[in-house]
């Protein structure tokens, strides 16, 4: 008789095989990387994403206000001029969840994105680029927040 555990292990392997073969719809693959959103630091995030250690780079750009009046919606522009760019990440160091977003940038999209992020308090904000050869490069900018956006 097969145990429940053996059955579960079997179905997990099967799901992995199907996913690898592209037979499962994308929704079934649970794409959201929960572990990455729990990472507290950049080196931890680099380890979770399987990249090289983080390095500062001028080829990653970050536009953000020096002083943000309202932490509930701080406008940011993140971009990169690196060849072979795969992902752009946005982090707010002192937020409870530092990682705000992971963007998978296709070749049809210019690697410059404008969005808005919440900031609980004044903090360093990081724009991070991950390249196809698994380098993790970043640019940092300090943003002072007059009114926090996480307390309500």
């Amino acid at each position: 008789m097969r145990t429940r555990r053996a059955l579960l292990a079997h179905s997990t392997r099967l799901a992995a095989l199907l996913a690898a073969a592209g037979l499962l719809p994308p929704a079934a693959q649970a794409a959201w990387n929960a572990a990455a959103f729990e990472a507290r630091t950049l080196p931890e995030l680099a380890r979770l994403l399987g990249t090289a250690a983080p390095a500062e780079s001028r080829e990653v750009s970050l536009g953000a206000p020096e002083v943000a009046e309202n932490g509930a919606a701080v406008p940011v522009v993140l971009g990169s001029t690196l060849p072979g760019l795969r992902r752009l990440l946005l982090l707010v160091e002192k937020n409870t969840t530092p990682l705000a977003a992971i963007f998978e940038v296709g070749e049809a999209v210019e690697p410059q994105l404008t969005t808005r992020v919440k900031m609980g308090q004044s903090s360093d904000v990081y724009a991070v680029a991950v390249t196809a050869d698994n380098r993790l490069l970043f640019t940092r900018r300090e943003v002072k927040v007059t009114l926090g956006g996480c307390g309500g």
Partner: peptide, 10 residues
Amino acid sequence: LSAQWGPAMA
């Protein structure tokens, strides 16, 4: 373009 977002997006 695809993205994964955390609760820190506005």
